[in-house]
Design a protein around this nucleic acid. Sequence first.
DNA 1: CGATATAGGGATATTTGATATCCATAATAT
DNA 2: ATATTATGGATATCAAATATCCCTATATCG
Lengths: 162, 162
Amino acid sequence: MILKSQIEWVLHCCAILAGLPDGRYLSTKALAELHGLPKEYLSKALQSLSQAGLVHSTLGPSGGYRLARPPAELTFLDIVEAVEGKARTFVCADIRANNPCRPKGYCDSSPCAVARIMWEADEAWRQKLRSVTLADLGEILSRETPPAIWNDTFEWVLKRAG
Amino acid sequence: MILKSQIEWVLHCCAILAGLPDGRYLSTKALAELHGLPKEYLSKALQSLSQAGLVHSTLGPSGGYRLARPPAELTFLDIVEAVEGKARTFVCADIRANNPCRPKGYCDSSPCAVARIMWEADEAWRQKLRSVTLADLGEILSRETPPAIWNDTFEWVLKRAG
DNA sequence: CGATATAGGGATATTTGATATCCATAATAT
DNA sequence: ATATTATGGATATCAAATATCCCTATATCG
């Protein structure tokens, strides 16, 4: 069970968008170049963000994406779920129902204990992702990235932002 | 990102094995029939448990599997990792290294912040799975399953256990 | 000893999802 | 008008999940 590589892509893209001045947009092309990613496929991932309402897009030259909300109001979970879907990682096929010792037509009153426990673990994962925002990420990155690279990067980005 | 269906299979199989009297073994055939599963494929999953040292197996007629440790010492995480592997669910391809603004040959001193956060969420998931044992599951199931079904099931099982 | 039932492992097939690429369309800036 | 962009649909490729089959060694039972 491994997350799509697109998850890494969009998280880094959102980190860049979070540093964009108000009203500016950054294109798929620029984001793909900056991260060394296939432009067409990255585009699909960004479209997922757009459909989830996490980013706002605009067309034409100087078009692209910007965050739809302040970085402090966008969580890792928002982004992960936009790309990966909201479905739980454990799917219960209710195999207990196949037990030949069950009375015919018997129906369980509550979900299987196995599923409930697996879903609790899933929820613990989501809770952790929900607790980290793009603002948190930006704070960490600006602290850890060497200032020269950090500044060059945003200069590079602003030169291409519409 | 969805867990293998085998995860549900082996968790239910282990719940049954946890209720087996000391020294008795239950075969793949019986476990497959009890849960309505393809015997050959379930066998692969049980082999994973065996290779991970979670169950002990024996050959021949009356052969099969039993738990290798007391139910209180077998966690959900043990079982999930035996089948799903121990690899983290988020794989960092280090795409930040593709940033054209980086000095040539520059090497990061620590893992990317994005990866660290994703790994923390992964660890929260594992921690939850680590906190639940087969003994816990058995306690819940014995409390929630109607006694008639519960007793019939173990009668059914013991009739087939070697 | 011989027949039978079992785990284990290897080879292979099928289906599904991830990873892409390409193209047509509509919108927008210059 | 022209160029550039997001969007959505169609299609191709590759890896993983989901099986199935067969062979071998081993253990039990008569």
